[in-house]
Write a protein that binds this DNA or RNA. Structure first.
Lengths: 215, 215
DNA sequence: AAATTAAGTGTACAGGTGTTGACTTAAATC
DNA sequence: GATTTAAGTCAACACCTGTACACTTAATTT
C-alpha cells in the first residue's frame, strides 16, 4: 500500500488469494455468522488455502475486516456520488434515487449484510468507522437539501436533523430488506413503497412545520 | 416453567446460579462481544461456577439467549404500557414519553445493548423474535396515533407508515445513545433533543401532507 | 428419620483455535 | 541465466471449546 520504491511496480499476478480470502469471509458472513465470530481457519478453508497462508496477506482477522469495510464503502460512495450529481431535486427524483439505492443494495447483498452486522456487533474500531461513514452521508444529504427550493428557509441545524431522520430510516429499511429472501420481489417493492411514502412525509412535512411553528 | 405438579412449590433457594449465569452473560455482552460469540465456559467462569453446572439450568447457550431476550422485553413492555395509558396525547406528552423511554434505556443499558447487537447479528430465531416484538410496538403506536385528534383523518395504512417511521428512528437513536459513555449527560440530552424535534416533524408534518396531497 | 431429587464439583476427551518456524516453489528483478 | 522475493505448504505448539460421565452434597418430600 505504501511501498512503490522501485521504478516499475511489481504486481503479484498469480495469487489472487487475497481476493479469495475476502470473498470467503463475505460468504461466511452471509450464510453463517457475523464477521466477528468467524475464525481464521474457517476463512482459509473456504478460500481453499492453508491456514498459515493467511498471514501473507493480512496480519490478523481484524485487518481483513477493515479491508472489507473499506471495499464496501468505496463502491457505495461511488454510487452515491452518481446519484447526487443528477439534476436538481424534484418530485420524481425522490423515487428514482430510492430505486437506484435499493437496487444497489440488492446487488451488493453480502457487503450490506456485513456492514449491517458489524454496525452493532463489531469491534469499537469497526463500529466507529461505520458510524463515521454514515455521518458523512448525512452531512452530504443535508447539503443537498439546502439547495432544495422548498427547504431553503430551513436553518442548518434543522436540515441536519431532517437528514438524520432520512438516513436513520433508510438504514432501518435497508436492514429490513436484507431480511427478505433474495427473490421476494413483492416484499422488496413493498419496502420501496414504504420508503418513498416516509421520505415524502419528511420532505413535505417540514414545510408546514417551519412556517407554522417558528415560535 | 411448566412443572408445578406437587401441592407445594419447591423452590431451590440455594442456587441463584441461574440468575448469576444470565447476569454474567449480560455483563460480557456489555464489555466484550455480542452474545453470539460468547462461550459457555467463559460465562460459567464469570458466574463463578464450574462449566458443567451450566447444564443444570439451560440446555445450551442459545436457550440462555432466548431467556435473556424474554427478560429484556417483558420489562420493556411493562414500561411501555404505563407510558401508553397516560392521558390523551398533547404537546408536552411527546417530550415526556421520550424522557421516560430514554431514561429507561439508560437504566437498562445492558439489556438494550444485548438486544441491539442480536437484532442484526444474532441467530435467525433471535432476530425474528426481536423483529416481531418491534412490530408489536409499531402496531400499538399506530393505534395510539389513531386517537390523536390531529390525525384522525389519516387512514390506517398511513398511520402504520408513520408509526414505522417513528419506531425506526427511535430505534436508531437508542443505538446512538448506547454508544455514548454512561456519564455523558450532554450527549444524552442532545440525542433526546434530536428525538423530540424529529418526532415533532413527523407528527405535525403529516397534517400538512394529508390535507394538501390527497390526490 | 429415610428417601429422593436438585444442584453443585472434577476428570476426561475429541476437536477447533491462533501462531511459530522451517521448508518449497514460482514469479519478478537483476 | 542467476538471484532475490512473494506466496504458497507442512508440522507442531499451547490453549480454548462443548459435552459426557461419575461423583458429592444439601434441600425437600415422604
Amino acid at each position: 500500500m505504501t511501498k512503490e520504491t522501485t521504478s516499475r511496480a511489481r504486481k503479484p499476478k498469480r495469487g489472487q488469494t487475497r481476493e479469495a480470502l475476502m470473498a470467503a469471509a463475505l460468504d461466511l458472513v452471509v450464510k453463517k455468522a457475523p464477521f466477528s465470530s468467524l475464525s481464521l481457519r474457517e476463512v482459509t478453508k473456504r478460500a481453499g488455502v492453508v491456514p498459515t497462508a493467511f498471514y501473507r496477506h493480512f496480519p490478523d482477522m481484524s485487518a481483513l475486516g477493515l479491508t472489507l469495510l473499506d471495499e464496501s464503502f468505496r463502491t457505495l460512495r461511488h454510487m452515491m456520488r452518481q446519484v447526487r450529481q443528477e439534476e436538481l431535486p424534484n418530485e420524481r427524483m425522490l423515487r428514482g434515487s430510492l430505486e437506484v439505492y435499493f437496487n444497489y443494495v440488492r446487488n451488493n447483498r453480502a457487503h450490506f449484510l456485513f456492514v449491517s452486522k458489524e454496525l452493532a456487533g463489531g469491534t469499537p474500531t469497526m463500529r466507529n468507522a461505520i458510524r463515521r461513514e454514515i455521518r458523512m452521508f448525512t452531512n452530504e444529504l443535508a447539503m443537498d437539501m439546502a439547495r432544495f427550493p422548498f427547504l431553503n428557509h430551513v436553518n442548518a441545524e434543522d436540515l441536519q436533523m431532517m437528514a438524520g431522520l432520512v438516513v436513520n430510516n433508510v438504514t432501518a429499511l435497508t436492514q429490513e430488506m436484507l431480511e427478505l429472501e433474495e427473490d421476494d420481489e413483492f416484499g422488496q417493492n413493498q419496502v420501496l413503497g414504504t420508503a418513498e411514502k416516509q421520505l415524502r412525509l419528511i420532505y413535505f412535512g417540514v414545510g408546514f412545520w417551519k412556517s407554522k411553528a417558528d415560535q
